[in-house]
């Protein structure tokens, strides 16, 4: 344990953690843009600077570890001036188009501009302009909104192990791109989208469908593999328009391409919407009563003629525990056979 003092408050800290983490654990606010709790620290944005007694210059709290007796001040006029300057510099090269941006309302940069009251561009001059170049159907990239925080690069490397992207070029020409700007070799997990603090990375399918916060959100479980990732389904009227996952879930907020981008089968026009009965080899729409009567009559006949064991049922791993329980109970108790199975072997 080490003892430190942050903004006059004495805090015991277990082991070697950073000043930023200490502050966050103790509910002390320090603004950040490039920091992400699940990624290694970068120290790139310089918003998290703090003053430490005895040190001549402010230091980045995300990359500085606490030490015994440290006296830390998270906010002074000088620090706030620097933070505001940093933000003004970032915003001087950022499209001022929050009114149409997908990220508005959940954008860290927008929140900080709001908090620091930055509206006018203090540094007019050359702007980075990019033509969109991506053929992928999942992720929308808008490099003009990229603040080069590097979160996407770290997520792709540290979390996904793919290393599809990295920083390219230097200085004003810096950008996030693939090696030699060749075609993207990507798993499209969208981890980069999840950690992007601005509107630089979004889901293609989300476009103009509704921003985070303006939609109804329902927590449920992903319909695909057996990992059981927890997802938040964003719903506009009766349609799913986005899927996200919170950082404190069992899956730590990470998803795969199917879980994050594979949801709109639910609203496909090809969904079955009415019971169908085959007559002379052709499906004909029927009412539920008619269809169910037909099923019970035929199952009843076959059971009477050939016995219960001439009937078999297959349930589904896509169905809930409750539906599976009821299905096997139905086969055993109502039909009278143990011929019931599902796709565990397939």
């Amino acid at each position: 344990m080490v003892k430190v003092r942050i903004d006059g408050k004495e805090i015991d800290v277990p082991g070697s953690i950073t000043i930023l983490e200490t502050a966050r654990r103790n509910d002390i606010y320090i603004p950040t843009l490039c920091h992400h709790p699940k990624l290694t620290p970068f120290g790139g944005c310089r918003l998290c600077i703090v003053e430490i007694k005895g040190m001549p210059r402010p230091v980045a709290s995300c990359t500085t570890q606490v030490a015994e007796g440290m006296e830390i001040t998270t906010s002074t006029d000088a620090i706030e001036d620097i933070r505001k300057l940093v933000l003004e510099l970032i915003l001087s090269d950022h499209p001022n188009d929050c009114m149409v941006c997908e990220k508005a309302g959940s954008c860290t940069l927008q929140d900080l501009a709001y908090a620091y009251g930055i509206r006018d561009n203090e540094f007019p001059g050359e702007r980075r302009t990019y033509t969109t170049r991506d053929g992928n159907p999942f992720i929308e990239r808008d490099l003009e909104k990229c603040i080069l925080c590097g979160r996407c690069v770290k997520a792709c490397d540290e979390i996904q192990g793919v290393e599809a992207i990295d920083f390219g070029y230097r200085g004003f020409k810096s950008k996030i791109c693939t090696a030699y700007e060749e075609d993207l070799d990507c798993e499209f997990c969208g981890q980069c989208v999840a950690v992007c603090p601005t509107g630089a990375l979004t889901g293609k399918a989300w476009k103009q469908q509704g921003r985070t916060g303006g939609l109804r959100e329902v927590d449920t479980v992903c319909p695909y593999c057996g990992t059981g990732c927890n997802i938040t389904v964003h719903v506009k009227r009766n349609e799913i328009v986005r899927i996200t996952s919170a950082e404190d879930t069992a899956n730590e907020g990470w998803l795969c391409v199917k879980g994050r981008f594979g949801y709109n089968f639910a609203s496909s026009p090809n969904r079955l919407t009415k019971p169908l009965i085959k007559r002379d080899g052709v499906f004909v729409e029927a009412g539920w009563d008619e269809a169910l009567d037909h099923i019970t009559a035929r199952l009843g006949e076959i059971k009477a003629q050939h016995g219960s064991d001439a009937i078999a049922g297959l349930s589904s791993a896509r169905c809930t525990n409750e539906e599976n329980y009821v299905f096997q109970k139905f086969m055993r108790a109502a039909v009278g056979t143990n011929n019931v199975d599902h796709c565990a072997r397939l």
Binding site: V221, C222, P223, Y224, C225, G226, T227, G228, L314, S315, S316, A317, R318, C319, T320, N321, N324, Y325, F327, Q328, N338, N339, V340, D341, H342, C343, A344
Partner: peptide, 18 residues
């Protein structure tokens, strides 16, 4: 590693013949 979202649950709930 179970391959389908509720294949564990379908097995638990005894959609199995034995």
């Amino acid at each position: 590693l179970r391959g389908q979202n509720n294949v564990q649950g379908s097995s638990d709930a005894a959609c199995m013949p034995n």
